[in-house]
């Protein structure tokens, strides 16, 4: 599914050169649920951006589904994001004054075939909402939804193009622990039921415990990469 080799990323901040990633090599198989942990500044977000084709590495190779995407031009990367990758963000990033359903439809406006027809859009968005159990909130606007519900709408939006890779950057950072676990349950289910590859960034150990594999980042390098034997996490509350 994912194969990165000696991935490096440099930023220029003024005269300084920041080495965010210093050569990461790892691979992720299909239907794996990987959680990435590490302190801030460890390079995990940069790694995630490159995995998500939002950014290109300075060095190294990134092969996604057998295709080298590390040197694709921006428009091609946009296609890859649209077709292969679903994103979930810490801040939900839903459009205000726009219904949950329309928020979920958003990726369908940018497909390779252009804008998907309205009826089909609605149909596919409803199915995605069904997967996160929010069909009854389809017409609600984000400000009428709780944080957990908003994040579930965001997950539905990530699922609507039926991607094979789901990337979540601190998806529970803005949620209380109960709803955090609800959200993580959804990820776990998507991984096991639908065989979607999931990569979640977190700095909370109990959230990381949902992964079948936990990767530790520090100073732009992978310091530990282990399978999570005790899959069942400690429930809180």
């Amino acid at each position: 599914m994912i194969a990165v080799h000696d991935l490096a990323k440099q930023y220029h901040v003024g005269d300084h050169v920041v080495n965010a990633l210093k050569g990461v090599t790892m691979s992720v198989g299909a239907a794996e649920f990987v959680t990435i942990v590490g302190p801030s500044g460890s390079g995990k977000s940069t790694f995630m951006h490159i995995l998500g084709c939002l950014d290109r590495p300075t060095n190294g190779r990134y092969v996604l589904n057998g295709r080298d995407v590390s040197t694709l031009p921006p428009d091609e990367l946009a296609r890859v994001r649209n077709e292969t990758i679903g994103f979930v963000f810490q801040g939900f990033n839903l459009l205000a004054r726009t219904s949950a359903l329309e928020n979920v439809e958003l990726p369908l406006l940018y497909t390779r075939q252009g804008v998907v027809r309205a009826a089909e859009r609605r149909d596919r968005a409803m199915r995605a909402l069904e997967a996160v159990g929010l069909t009854d909130r389809a017409d609600h606007h984000p400000n009428q939804l709780s944080g957990g519900q908003q994040q579930r709408v965001a997950i539905a939006r990530a699922l609507v193009t039926q991607p094979s890779l789901l990337l979540a950057d601190e998806p529970t950072g803005n949620l209380d622990s109960a709803t955090s676990h609800e959200v993580m349950e959804i990820f776990a289910r998507l991984s096991s039921d639908r065989g979607i590859t999931i990569v979640v960034i977190t700095h909370e150990r109990d959230i990381a415990a949902y992964g079948t594999r936990i990767v530790d980042f520090r100073d732009g390098l992978v310091v530990s990469d282990r399978a999570n034997e005790a899959r069942e996490p400690a429930r809180v509350g």
């Binding site: 998500g52 939002l54 921006p74 428009d75 946009a78 296609r79 994001r81 649209n82 077709e83 994103f87 963000f89 801040g91 990033n93 459009l95 958003l106 990726p107 406006l109 940018y110 497909t111 939006r157 193009t161």
Partner: peptide, 16 residues
């Protein structure tokens, strides 16, 4: 700006 970022993340190209 963040809406633009989101749209790009879900597949919008510069020209969109």
């Amino acid at each position: 700006t963040s809406e633009i970022g989101l749209r790009m993340a879900v597949g919008a190209r510069g020209k969109d």
